[in-house]
Structure formats: C-alpha cells, structure tokens
C-alpha cells in the first residue's frame, strides 16, 4: 500500500519549479529545462493515476475495484508524453541553435522584435521588403 499524497505533492513541486524556471531564466536552453520539469510533473501524475483500478477513485472502495484497466492508460500516456517531449526538445533546440547563429546569443531579452517599441526593430514595411530581396 502506498499513499497517493506523495506523488501528487512531488508533481506539484516539480510543476511550480518548472514555471519558475520558464519565467525566471533568460537563457533559452535553461527555459527549456523548466519546460522539461513541467512535462515530467504531468508524467508523474499520469503514472500515479495508473495505480488506481479501472473506474478511478470511485471504484476504489468497492469489491470490484481491484480490476486493472487492460489498456493501462496512465502509463501508456506517460510513454506518449515522453515521446512528444523528445520531439519537442529536438525542434526547440534546433531553433535555439538557429537563434545563436543569427544573433550570437541565446538570451531571450535579445529577441524582442515582435514587441511594441522594440529597441532593435527598426524596419518599416518598405525596408523589410527591400531587405528580403
């Protein structure tokens, strides 16, 4: 027997750390590390939920509540999430590399062109067209 409380608290802590990492970091790679923590928090919740019998919490106290869901959705989902996370980090790091190549830095503060009153963005539609050609 094991308490579900532990995995839940650990997942919440990891999610909070992930959010902190995403918001506080300036380095793009470190932001991605925060995102990984968030994804793992979700995974932990999925795996913890997979220990519940078919029917979830409602079936727990009942006599029939010991039957395992043959599809094991929690763990299958966790595997899928890991796969998707791998794909995501691959594309994301490729973008970071591209950014480094273009700007020589991976700091997010250096790429604010899409914002209002960007310090580095000076293009007008006409110059943008000219630059593109």
């Amino acid at each position: 027997m094991i308490h579900l409380l532990g995995p839940l608290v650990l997942a919440s802590v990891l999610a909070g750390l992930g959010v902190y990492g995403i918001l506080a970091r300036r380095n793009a790679v470190l932001v991605l590390i925060g995102a990984e923590l968030l994804l793992n928090a979700a995974n932990l919740l999925l795996v913890a939920a997979s220990t519940l019998p078919a029917g979830g919490l409602a079936a727990l106290g009942q006599a029939t509540g010991q039957v395992q869901d043959p599809l094991i959705p929690g763990q299958s989902m966790a595997i899928f999430v890991i796969t998707i996370a791998a794909a995501e980090i691959g594309v994301a790091l490729a973008i970071v590399l591209l950014l480094f190549r273009a700007r020589g830095t991976v700091e997010l503060t250096a790429v604010q062109e899409l914002g209002e009153a960007s310090a580095t963005y000076t293009e007008t539609p006409q110059t943008a067209k000219a630059n593109g050609q």
Partner: peptide, 12 residues
C-alpha cells in the same frame, strides 16, 4: 489534487 484525491491509499 490533495482536495480531490489526498489521503487515498493504493495497492501497487
């Protein structure tokens, strides 16, 4: 999460 499933014990 604790409000919803806290205090539940499961058999691994």
């Amino acid at each position: 999460l604790i409000y919803a499933v806290g205090g539940t014990e499961v058999q691994v």
